[in-house]
Simulated scan of single mutants.
Amino acid sequence: MSNMLTKQEMIDRILHLLHKTSMYDSEYERVATLPFEEGYIGDLSPVVRVGEQDYELAMYERGVQMLSKRTKDTDEVIFWILEDTIHTIAHIKLLQKYKVDNVNTHLKYTKDEIQEMTDMIHESFLQIGGQYEEWHKAGKRKELESPNPGRNTGKGTERS
């Protein structure tokens, strides 16, 4: 388990990891920092609240809190934000490539477009490597976003 970090220390680590990817661009840094902002409750986006002894992972849908989990594992928090940030950047890059804005013009989300986005995401985690790549391959994001009240997330990842 990692030691508790401040919001800024976590943001710095996330940005350092994003720098390892070919998709990094400073214009996307806001995607990684927004979940840590006081009062932020984006729609189906990660929210992180840093407490004195643990972190709260939260998610809202249309202003209603849909997820609230606590963890002491800094790496879980960093991974969760990395996953969401990389997915968001890959989606933005696809919108730019196909010159659509998803307001007036839309992606068709064809099999090829979805595969292209998936490839960008996998490549980014390959470039980051280590446990974050392993967690990405293992689908840990789904675990983090699933409410399972009996699990103590403070112990890190349990492997079978």
Rank of each mutant, 00 (worst) to 15 (best):
4 M>F: 14
6 T>W: 15
7 K>F: 08
7 K>A: 13
13 R>Y: 14
13 R>D: 13
16 H>V: 00
16 H>I: 00
17 L>C: 04
20 K>S: 05
21 T>M: 06
21 T>N: 09
22 S>A: 10
23 M>V: 07
25 D>H: 13
25 D>Q: 12
27 E>L: 13
28 Y>K: 06
33 T>I: 12
35 P>C: 14
37 E>D: 11
38 E>F: 00
44 L>I: 02
45 S>A: 05
50 V>G: 15
50 V>I: 15
52 E>R: 14
52 E>V: 08
53 Q>R: 08
56 E>D: 11
57 L>C: 01
61 E>C: 09
64 V>G: 00
64 V>M: 02
66 M>H: 04
67 L>R: 09
68 S>V: 01
77 V>Q: 04
81 I>H: 05
92 I>N: 09
99 K>M: 06
101 D>H: 06
107 L>K: 04
109 Y>M: 10
113 E>D: 06
114 I>F: 05
122 H>A: 13
123 E>A: 14
126 L>P: 00
130 G>A: 04
132 Y>P: 00
134 E>I: 07
134 E>Q: 08
137 K>G: 02
138 A>Y: 02
143 E>H: 06
143 E>T: 07
144 L>F: 14
146 S>K: 11
147 P>T: 11
148 N>K: 06
150 G>W: 05
151 R>F: 14
152 N>P: 01
153 T>C: 14
